[in-house]
Design a protein around this nucleic acid. Sequence first.
RNA 1: GCGCUCGUAGCUCAAUCGGAUAGAGCAACGGCCUUCUAAGCCGUAGGUUGCAGGUUCGAUUCCUGCCGAGCGCGCCA
Length: 573
Amino acid sequence: MRRIIENLVAGIIEKLQSDALLPAGELPEYKVERPRDESHGDFSTNAALVLSRFAKMKPRDLAEKMLAALPSEQKEVDSWEVAGPGFINFRITPQRIRQLIPDILEANSDYGRSTIGNGQRILVEFVSANPTGPMHVGHGRGAVMGDAIATILQVTGHAVEREYYINDAGTQIGVLGWSVMLRYRELFGYEISMPDGSYPAQYVIDIAQSLKDKDGERWLEITTDLSAAPPLEVVNFAMERIMGWIRHDLEKINIHFDNWFSERTLHAKGKIDETIEQLTKKDLIYEGVLEPPKGKLLDDWEARPQLLFKATQFGDSVDRALKKSDNSATYFAADIAYHFDKAERGFDLLIDVWGADHGGYVKRVQAALTALTGKKKLLDVELVQMVNLVRGGEPVKMSKRDGTFVTLAEVVDEVGSDAVRFLFLTRSGGAALDFDLELAVSKSNDNPVFYVQYAHARINAVYRQLAEKGLEAGLGDGSGDLSGLTQDSELSLIRLLGAYPEMLEGAALNREPHRVPYYLIDLASAFHTYYNSTRILDDDVVLMAARLSLISAVRQVLANGLGLLGVSAPEKM
RNA sequence: GCGCUCGUAGCUCAAUCGGAUAGAGCAACGGCCUUCUAAGCCGUAGGUUGCAGGUUCGAUUCCUGCCGAGCGCGCCA
């Protein structure tokens, strides 16, 4: 719908250019947007404000000239005027606005889709929780966020793949293996002590128990020398168990990945050495000694020569280590190799969704990727702030160490997938989130999930009522005469429906899924207002059909928006 | 000390890549159910957008400096 006005304004500017009122060639960008205030029309442009300098005119004068260049015969635009400091406001004809209803009903579940992505190939990597324990709520937020970003990009015409990076190599995995081994011994009555940094929680005992059930005493003879690597078979057993939980938990909140990428395959294929070699060829690797970190006390710090990547050449604050003292690869080295692998798979853009605690890590990965590919903005990292779990205002303690943490699965069991998904998304990712378990199940206006779903259910209730009255079910398919929709509440409701595709474009462009739930809350609110003020099942059949068409379109957009968030749109509540 | 993310109504949060008079919900107060779902609607009240400068037609938004919060800061992931 915005296109109508965009084309109009573009036409005007072209005309002014040919009339030499504006200089030819490239001009600065102006905008056509929906004003916040409906009294400012359906669309507004700041073109005169932006271009006034080039026309050597005052903004308002230029705006007048622009309107003079507008053919007075307009089919879809009702009125236009100069307002404020030099905005031009346009109003779309009611007929054109009403036309949105059949448009939406015809497009059906495709309404809102666009092709602005031009098929751009994007890989969205998210969750990637370590297979050392069940997912907690923080992972859940990242999961829902990543999934929503992916979906929004899909419906705006991008070719998206979802990927989970499994950190199945490295020291943490070894620690997990030993944690299980110790608990396993304990099950046979041996005295054990869990060393610092191990995983003592109940789930480790559960895994140990299944290991015992499966293999009996088979692993008892294995040394408990913690400095050695734990048996690979035990490690794999534990890890597969945990990954099973993770997949199951993701399933519960309706998240599905296209790819599960194993870190081990990087090691196995020599990808890490290969990547270091690439960097060496570009003369970006050297042996050096780093300064001790400032402001953080490291009691075991000692100056030591390391294999370093020249990250400072690409905007990072210090050069970064690629090898540990035992000459094995750092996590960073593996991560570079992983991201390089993504790049080699031919994606136009890589999006990573990380927890905010990894924020300090962004620059170095981007630096390495730029070094390897020559592309500057290949990797976009979206940081998701932490989740504070709250129950009735009281914080719920979470710690992976003492085993009292609350898992995502527990929360989903308690409040349901819809509430988790919607509430995790109804906040910009940059802001920390207090997730209140009581509020999530409360049936109040404070809980937007129910509010939006209720609007959808209410519309269905009207249709059920229609059937009970024995009236034709086909009423409200948008085909009838809609000219009876003249109330302000009706026209602004339709306008809001018309804004849906634009909202989605904005959400995609800025990677801000939270715009979707906020929009849906607005739409639900506008509908509830309308519903309370106006009777749908009017005695006038033509008018009733028109109103049914309207709310049917509202229902469609609510369903589309909720669907995109992975939240159900119930017919009855 | 440095970096990142933030700071908006009493509380939880919005504000369209710089737009016009900064908006919702909750909490407070007052109204609306013999009619399609009251899990709803309407109204009242609530603000120096942390502070101070700067950029310009215009700043919650961009820049600089302070204040405050969270996260991070060799060989963990």
